[in-house]
Amino acid sequence: MHIVVCVKQVPDTKVIKINPKTNTLDRRGVPSIINPYDAHAVQEAVHLKRQHGGKVSVLSMGPPQATAVIKKSIEIGADEGYLISDRAFAGADTLATSYALTKALEKISKTSPIDMVFCGKHAIDGDTGQVGPGIAKRLDIPPITNISAITKVTKDYVELQRKLQDGYAHIRSTLPCLITIEKEINEIEYAPFPNMLKAVNYQPVVWSIDHLEDVDRKQLGLKGSPTVVGKMFAPPKQEGGHRLEGTPEEQVVQLVEVLKEKQYLFHFNKG
């Protein structure tokens, strides 16, 4: 079984700052990490490899520094990594990104046919979740999104648990297919020492646009991106409410009075 996991390097959104004067992103000192959902996807692929044999490859698109997320994937247990890196890919929205990644997946599958493609549910910097289904459409394989468990794997099909708004669907798909991974599918394990050693010295296969085949340059990067950012702005200010004053005790007393007066207490339903 050959699984390819698409991984993305993202700024750690927990520490991102916005400059309030210019409404622009202040990237200084913001660390880059592997998109957390993608890390779970790599971990899940490694689990499946342990049970069913085969190989786990990871694929990323980004600047040369994105090698770091491939090394991270090797630590988790991936066998090999590919980075597509070229100025021609820069500024890509989700449509252009899925095009470039698909071209790389097609090239990988020529030497080693792919049974499954894994993606994280979404990337924490864009929160879109659009690239995975986009790749599946381009490869003409079924996409199954929001997967919280893989319940059965055979050489012809997989059975999956897909999270819905209210419950889940149990789905069977033929192979090859593409799935997007929810965090609850697994816990990231501590990296075994040999993996860490391997990761330190690991160098991924790096492809520029010239390494990819049958590429229509008009579909890449900024040129191939139908969406543009029109403007950035501070969210509309809402009128703040009433501030309570005094010591914690005094404030709580005021709050209780208000809740009593407005008859909100009946919403409290157990003592």
Binding site: T13, I18, P20, L25, I124, D125, V228, M232, A234
Partner: peptide, 11 residues
């Protein structure tokens, strides 16, 4: 960007 900013996207 998970922060206090809105972006308007056009196609």
């Amino acid at each position: 960007f998970g922060g206090n900013i809105m972006a308007t996207i056009l196609c």
